[in-house]
Simulated assay, not measured.
Amino acid sequence: MTRSPLRVEHASDWTVVTLDRPEVRNAIDQATVDALHTVCADLEHEPRTLIVTGSGGIFASGADIAELRVRRAADARRAINQAVFMRVRALPMPVIAALDGYALGGGAELAYAADIRIATPSVKIGNPETGLGIMAAAGATWRLPAIVGEARAAEMLLTGRILDADEALSWGLVSALHPADELLAAAHALADRIARNDPLATRYTKQVLQTEPLDQPALVNELQAELFESPEKIRRMTAFLERRAR
Rank of each mutant, 00 (worst) to 15 (best):
residue 95 V to F: 04
residue 38 T to N: 04
residue 62 G to L: 13
residue 194 I to Y: 12
residue 188 H to K: 14
residue 171 W to A: 14
residue 246 R to M: 12
residue 231 P to Q: 03
residue 44 E to R: 15
residue 42 D to K: 00
residue 147 I to T: 12
residue 239 A to R: 14
residue 191 A to L: 02
residue 153 A to M: 06
residue 64 D to Q: 12
residue 21 R to I: 00
residue 145 P to N: 00
residue 202 T to Q: 06
residue 189 A to G: 14
residue 43 L to W: 06
residue 6 L to C: 05
residue 151 A to S: 14
residue 75 D to R: 01
residue 185 A to V: 08
residue 27 A to Q: 14
residue 69 R to S: 13
residue 111 A to Y: 07
residue 163 L to R: 11
residue 11 A to Y: 05
residue 80 I to S: 07
residue 113 A to C: 06
residue 37 H to Q: 08
residue 35 A to R: 09
residue 130 T to F: 08
residue 152 R to L: 14
residue 128 P to Q: 12
residue 130 T to Q: 08
residue 44 E to H: 15
residue 238 T to H: 07
residue 11 A to N: 05
residue 66 A to L: 11
residue 47 P to Y: 09
residue 49 T to K: 00
residue 223 L to E: 11
residue 46 E to N: 09
residue 49 T to G: 01
residue 137 A to R: 10
residue 215 D to E: 14
residue 41 A to Y: 00
residue 67 E to H: 05
residue 26 N to A: 02
residue 38 T to Q: 15
residue 39 V to P: 00
residue 127 N to M: 11
residue 206 K to N: 04
residue 84 V to K: 01
residue 43 L to R: 03
residue 185 A to N: 09
residue 125 I to D: 03
residue 199 P to E: 06
residue 25 R to E: 12
residue 61 S to L: 06
residue 52 V to M: 14
residue 66 A to N: 07
residue 183 L to N: 03
residue 191 A to N: 03
residue 152 R to Q: 14
residue 77 R to A: 12
residue 112 Y to L: 15
residue 110 L to N: 03
residue 78 R to E: 10
residue 23 E to D: 15
residue 45 H to K: 10
residue 117 R to I: 06
residue 14 W to R: 15
residue 92 P to G: 15
residue 112 Y to N: 08
residue 100 D to R: 14
residue 219 L to G: 08
residue 85 F to P: 07
residue 225 A to T: 09
residue 127 N to E: 07
residue 1 M to L: 08
residue 22 P to Y: 04
residue 109 E to S: 05
residue 105 G to P: 00
residue 67 E to Y: 10
residue 231 P to W: 07
residue 23 E to H: 01
residue 156 M to G: 04
residue 178 H to P: 03
residue 169 L to Q: 09
residue 126 G to E: 04
residue 196 R to Q: 15
residue 147 I to H: 01
residue 144 L to A: 12
residue 107 G to S: 06
residue 177 L to S: 05
residue 18 T to Y: 07
residue 241 L to P: 02
residue 41 A to F: 01
residue 192 D to G: 07
residue 47 P to N: 08
residue 153 A to V: 08
residue 146 A to S: 10
residue 217 P to I: 13
residue 41 A to T: 05
residue 92 P to N: 14
residue 86 M to A: 15
residue 176 A to I: 07
residue 104 L to P: 00
residue 88 V to Q: 03
residue 34 D to P: 05
residue 96 I to A: 00
residue 150 E to M: 03
residue 166 D to R: 07
residue 193 R to V: 01
residue 208 V to A: 04
residue 81 N to T: 12
residue 125 I to W: 03
residue 165 A to G: 05
residue 215 D to L: 15
residue 151 A to E: 11
residue 89 R to I: 00
residue 12 S to N: 10
residue 208 V to H: 03
residue 179 P to L: 14
residue 111 A to H: 03
residue 196 R to K: 04
residue 98 A to E: 02
residue 128 P to E: 13
